[in-house]
Design a protein around this nucleic acid. Sequence first.
DNA 1: AAGGTCATCAACCGCCCTTCC
DNA 2: TGGAAGGGCGGTTGATGACCT
Length: 324
Amino acid sequence: MRVAMSSSPSKSGSSCGEEDTELRRGPWTLEEDTLLIHYITHHGEGRWNLLARCSGLKRTGKSCRLRWLNYLKPDVKRGNLSPEEQLVILELHSKWGNRWSKIAQHLPGRTDNEIKNYWRTRVQKQARHLKIDENSAKFRDAIRWFWMPRLIQKMEEEAHSSSSSSSAMETQSSPPMSLLLNQASQASLEAPLQQGSLMISEPTKKNPSSGENYCTSPSFSSSHSMNISNQFPHQITEIPTSPYEFGNIVYNTNNSLPKGCYNYYVDNNGGYDIEGFNNLSSSMSTLGHPLDNSASAHYHVTENNWIIQGDVADNLLCNMDDLW
DNA sequence: AAGGTCATCAACCGCCCTTCC
DNA sequence: TGGAAGGGCGGTTGATGACCT
């Protein structure tokens, strides 16, 4: 069937009277919204073409459905995506690609359209800025190694700020983080192309590399640990065997954490810049860092843990607050 | 202040699958 | 069983507002 966006009336039988000759298009008016809400309130969802005919709306069934699902439905969330939600999107997109509706199932209140728009306007934009193919392993690694840790950092920051202001409020507003991440983890288990699961752990107290207590920037009392189980990521090329640095960012491997763990440590500084990221990216590529774009080799994450730490990373990385 | 550019997002399009008759 | 209708999904477009010069 092809829904003709034309003025031709429906051929199917209908008890809802005469059809109009002109179907409306474009932005919905308040009157149309009210009409749609009123109709669905009394008749429920579904049978969208019938709804379109019977409600008096001069819209196609598809248009009505889209308007309801993406905008009018009571449980649709409005406003910016939280860092937790962004993290889930990044994680699930790495598994499923552009399966927006499937990803949306794990983000209560968010629509596939919203997630798709987010990806196109934010994520793809960064790929363009970095001059990296959005589908490349390099870009996926950039997301995993820098942007996801940054989101985790923001989540921690928000958790700290909300806990300091009101623990009661936190229990009201924070559950989506654990909920969503659990869902992402569960989704990973269900995914046919399973590449890993994702969870947020309690802050690690020790630097796994040195065994010493790990200390981030003064304004941030705990490090962030992101554990991602094995089989992930599959594109990464080679692993450094000893710590090495870029500016104040240290890359390290160690075997002190349980196999299957994949840890990021990010400091609390923001204010990154695109150029810095590009420099970092190219530097890492020359040394065979995961940002290397070679797809021929495989990274066995079960044997390694990476550390990224520093206190003036703002000179090296993108400004995540601007990016996201 | 005005015009140009860019980013965002609601809405539409076309394809495809499922359900119904 | 096959065609029509209903509905879902990913890709794309265009209106609008923010920002810049």
